[in-house]
């Protein structure tokens, strides 16, 4: 009898311990790759909880819980595999052009190998190429010049023999200035193509 009670007692302790460290649902705010930190808001029936310190978490159990620190061991145990599965982060490059055409500046020409190298390191890369112009000339002609620049830039990458899975090629003409200027103004920094390798 005593033995049975003892076994029952041990069973209860083990069960409670298991419940206490039972895996639960929660969210953790993490620092970005560049060191910056954003915010998370967790909303449920009991209200809002704001997370704004890296490596703090809150339970997702429907209650308005208190944020707590999540240590590296727990992060690795619960998220190690998800973190390891992260694809390479998208990278963007800016190419600049001589006035009025699709001739790259010398500095920008020198960037091409880095772009091709980036695409080589992205699995199944999908690439977007957006052409821009300055405000010199009429806006319709600049829409066309923007797309010509984007196409020429895409062709450079294509000719390197990369297996790009998807292309987005578009022109923003003079509608999306990097350096705001009045109309009819030459601005080298606005004559550009933005390439993103995902």
């Amino acid at each position: 009898m005593i033995r049975h009670l003892k076994a029952y007692f041990i069973f209860c302790v083990v069960l409670l311990a298991a419940m206490g460290c039972a895996p639960k649902s929660y969210v953790v705010l993490m620092e970005n790759a560049d060191g910056t930190v954003g915010q998370l808001a967790v909303t449920n029936a009991e209200g809002d909880v704001l997370l704004n310190k890296p490596r703090t978490g809150v339970d997702l159990d429907g209650k308005a819980g208190k944020p707590y620190t999540v240590d590296e061991n727990r992060i690795q145990r619960d998220f190690g595999e998800a973190i390891a599965a992260q694809p390479p982060l998208p990278v963007s490059f800016m190419l600049y052009y001589e006035a009025g055409g699709t001739v790259l500046t010398d500095e920008s020409k020198a960037l091409i190998p880095a772009i091709i190298e980036a695409a080589r390191h992205h699995p199944a890369p999908d690439v977007s190429v957006i052409g821009h112009t300055d405000t010199l000339g009429d806006s319709e002609a600049n829409e066309k010049l923007g797309i010509e620049r984007a196409q020429a830039a895409a062709e450079i990458i294509r000719s390197a023999g990369l297996q790009v899975i998807d292309w987005t090629i578009a022109s923003h003409g003079e509608r999306n200035l990097l350096i705001p200027t009045p109309d009819e103004m030459a601005e080298p920094k606005n004559r550009r193509v933005e390439i993103t390798v995902r």
């Binding site: 039972a22 895996p23 639960k24 649902s25 929660y26 969210v27 953790v28 705010l29 993490m30 620092e31 970005n32 790759a33 930190v37 954003g38 915010q39 998370l40 808001a41 967790v42 909303t43 449920n44 978490g57 339970d59 997702l60 159990d61 429907g62 992060i75 619960d78 998220f79 998800a82 973190i83």
Partner: peptide, 25 residues
């Protein structure tokens, strides 16, 4: 901000520009 959300049974997560981790049991 707040246009990116993850819905779970125990709460709605709204993301303001960051990296984050979610576990759901």
């Amino acid at each position: 901000p707040q246009a990116v959300t993850v819905k779970t049974q125990g709460g709605l997560i709204g993301c303001r520009g960051t990296r984050f981790l979610v576990k759901v049991e």
